[in-house]
């Protein structure tokens, strides 16, 4: 504001005439680029802890495993436990359910996976326990809890689980068969700690 516009431009011109013009402007470009790069880096460094702070905190991560006693779950019964705030479906499947799941041709599946692969972790002491199906009970469509844990629940057309929200149907291996869900019910990491106990997570 102190200088009228003409004097400002005069000053710039006089300055340019004195020095090497090309050299000077390239030096100025360098300064602009360097300052811009520093500002960019500064922004990222500032934003990182803020964004990272929204990820699960240490105590949330620490509560990420659950131990379950399976001894009370008889054949044909189901148990729902909480793991990481989500329901986990544990089912002691009947032989009929296992046979049904294993008879399905891979071509009929939207997310092809054998029943053997889905219960691969169900083993203890070198013995396979294919009756134990352990899955995260969260529909892979939009996160509802499917019905089918109780005998009185609807089980869908495939003797498995039925999601009431948007009608996804899962079979007796928890694989998606019909409806909008894209994937099979997720298998959490778990292992048998003895013949009747599992640790999820």
């Amino acid at each position: 504001m102190a200088h009228p516009p003409s004097s400002t431009s005069d000053q710039t011109c006089g300055h340019c005439q004195q020095g090497d013009e090309e050299n000077d402007s390239s030096r100025r470009d360098f300064l602009t680029l360097a300052a811009g790069a520093m500002a960019g880096v500064g922004t990222i460094v500032t934003a990182y802890p803020l964004i990272q702070s929204m990820n699960p905190a240490a105590d949330v991560l620490a509560m990420a495993t659950t131990e379950v006693d399976l001894s009370a779950v008889k054949e044909g019964q189901s148990l729902t436990v909480v793991w990481r705030g989500k329901p986990v479906f544990i089912r002691n499947r009947t032989q009929a359910e296992i046979d049904e799941a294993r008879a399905v041709p891979m071509n009929d599946l939207k997310d092809p996976q054998t029943d053997q692969a889905r219960v691969a972790n169900s083993k203890f002491g070198g013995k396979d326990l294919p009756e134990w199906l352990v899955m995260v009970g969260v529909c892979t469509h939009l996160g509802c809890v499917p019905l089918g844990q109780k005998p009185t629940d609807p089980h869908g057309e495939f003797d498995g689980w039925f999601c009431p929200c948007h009608g996804s149907q899962y079979d007796s291996s928890g694989r998606i068969r019909k409806g909008p869900a894209p994937k099979n019910l997720e298998i959490p990491p778990y292992q048998f700690t003895d013949a009747t106990h599992i640790k999820i997570g």
Binding site: I51, A57, V60, R84, G85
Partner: peptide, 26 residues
């Protein structure tokens, strides 16, 4: 739950984004 899960539809990073939105696993 339903609306935050919409972001899981994003290929590759979807699930990470949802965990970030939740600040947990649900």
């Amino acid at each position: 739950t339903v609306i935050t899960n919409l972001f899981s539809a994003i290929p590759l990073v979807g699930n990470k984004i949802v965990t970030w939105l939740w600040g947990g696993f649900s």
